[in-house]
Design a protein around this nucleic acid. Structure first.
Lengths: 346, 346
DNA sequence: CTGTTAGCGCGTTCAT
DNA sequence: ATGAACGCGCTAACAG
């Protein structure tokens, strides 16, 4: 054994009086190695509890078998679901996942990308920090041949690989659902105006109403920065409109919960005086006694899966020629919240 | 530049007609390098957009700057909080985190440990799979000088470094709280009997009741494997006891939610006919209209933080002499669930 | 079938 | 203050 106390192929070779390359070949099942030799080597490797040094292999092969995953926040349910998917898929390909959280800070995001570059990860999956507007740190990866797949929070440009939610279909489905149930005064409680998704939602909102020949009243569109206070304030504005809206589409579950609380405090009855629909990012709706009527499911696991699939494809089929930029769009799905499906005592 | 298109110190050296060792020293701020040379090298490095190959450095130094983190499930809130903490702390030390999820499968856990061994991570933090009873795969790490810190789901043995929740104080506080509010028939809805924490809970339960001179009735102690159906079944058993329990301590929030649902279905009033307290691992209790009365907070972030702290200490102060096994115990805290704290419109 | 040799990128002696 | 040489563990030509 080497001084470090860890067995290397050298040790095995010496023991067997063969060349290191023979050991290397025997262990990796090279066909040119005789069966007898192969078995001898493999057995001795086991006896000496040899564990190949992937780090050395990576160094030599210029392939680390590691992909980087950068998200704003590891503990947010949407992201941890996606991470779980990425890990599952990576593992299937014998790949491993190095994580980093940007905490929605662009500089931190840059530092993580730099670190992952230095680690020579084989690819990166990233959901952008809230205010990232400059993509130099990702562009630089190109010269290192490190493919990048964006997911969920993606750049506007078409010149990247990306996986994201289809805001249009989800929003359309939600609004049409409300219209079909007779609602004509539908409020939109949107996110901060700096987020691209906010604009998209507004566009679809207007488009669907127009198509259905329903009067568009921009007094029914309000913004919140996701904090309860501004949500309450927005609700005040919305409920002050005449005639009062009969439904509200909230931009995510956290906001919806605040809306529901507001409704209670205002003495209104949820989903009767005011119907609430939101975009789902909490796993809890089925446990709430007063959930929104429905949610647009955004399938974080599928998004992570699709991103990992795409990245693995880019890594494994790494042709020299640049590949066309892929875009995977995850369709939302409106899910009605029932009470619990299973009944006690069955 | 090398053929691969990536700048190395060799390239910089050639350009400057100096030795690679000079470049290496200049870049790492070695004092024996003249200021002029240092600056020249640093500037050229920037111009050639040199990014040191950490992989090569790790290979040479036998230090990867990576720690492994193994949890049963990445998307469970308790764990994703802990992961967030580990990542934050690792980053402070310029370390990075490689993740793996065992999906509560011992064999998978072993495979992940093997992979991390091969990657030569500098240390591992792990929360055990539900049914892991054999620790060979962790013992083997010793010969690789890879320190291991267990957290939350830890082995019983004292001969490991570990961070875990103090089941005693949290449980004691919860039960005494119930007793102080007049409850005398307190049910314990425990986890599967194979988990060590289950036994601990039962022990404390019996101990506190004995101390408070309350009759112990093992009919009030039931097990669930965490699935709704068995929880419902357990609730049936518990509520069939005479006299009926007036309170139940559920082993975690998921179980508590099922309990709450059962109560509704049984036509009982939550926290009146039956008071519910649980161990918290969901972030949602404050949003439930019918939350448990209180939860024992288990501070996942702190647990992750403590585990990472301990591991970093083991890595950085790696003396040759074995270090005594550390044990960090996180005290639980009983948290009363109020309705929303902030009111609308304020 | 197997041995020899070279080298991946870097830090680190040991010289000078 | 700088250079030359070596080797970490492994794979991959190239030779036999």
């Amino acid at each position: 054994m080497s001084r470090s106390g860890v067995t290397t192929i050298k040790d095995i070779a010496r023991q067997l009086n063969v060349a290191t390359s023979t050991v290397s070949r025997a262990l990796s099942g090279h066909k040119s190695i005789g069966l007898g030799m192969r078995l001898k080597v493999q057995q001795l490797a086991r006896e000496m509890s040899y564990h190949p040094n992937r780090n050395a292999i990576a160094f030599k092969q210029r392939r680390t078998g590691i992909i980087g995953l950068i998200v704003p926040n590891l503990s947010e349910h949407f992201f941890s679901e996606a991470i779980s998917a990425v890990e599952d898929l990576a593992m299937q390909h014998q790949y491993h996942v190095l994580i980093g959280q940007s905490h929605d800070d662009e500089e931190r995001e840059q530092r993580i990308v730099e670190a992952m570059t230095q680690q020579r990860v084989d690819g990166i999956i990233v959901s952008l920090a809230k205010h990232t507007v400059q993509y130099d740190h990702f562009d630089r990866l190109e010269s290192y041949h490190i493919p990048v797949v964006f997911f969920d929070r993606v750049p506007q440009t078409a010149e990247v690989h990306k996986v994201h939610f289809n805001m249009e279909s989800g929003t359309r489905e939600a609004i049409e659902f409300l219209i079909d149930r007779g609602h004509r005064r539908i409020a939109l409680l949107n996110g901060p105006e700096c987020m691209p998704s906010t604009l998209e939602r507004t566009d679809v909102y207007k488009e669907v109403l127009a198509q259905r020949r329903i009067k568009i009243d921009m007094g029914l569109v309000a913004s919140t920065d996701l904090m309860p206070d501004t949500t309450y304030h927005a609700m005040e504005l919305l409920l002050a409109q005449k005639p009062r809206p009969t439904a509200v589409l909230a931009m995510n579950d956290y906001v919806a919960l605040d809306v529901i609380e507001y409704i209670k405090q205002a003495g209104l009855e949820l989903n009767k005086d005011l119907t609430v629909i939101s975009y789902s990012n909490l796993p809890i709706s089925n446990y709430l006694q007063s959930p929104p009527l429905a949610s647009v499911e955004q399938f974080p696991y599928r998004q992570g899966e699709a991103a990992a699939d795409l990245l693995m494809d880019l890594i494994l089929n790494k042709k020299d020629g640049e590949q066309p930029f892929q875009q995977v769009i995850i369709e939302g799905k409106l899910v009605l919240h029932n009470a619990f499906k299973s009944k006690p005592g069955k």
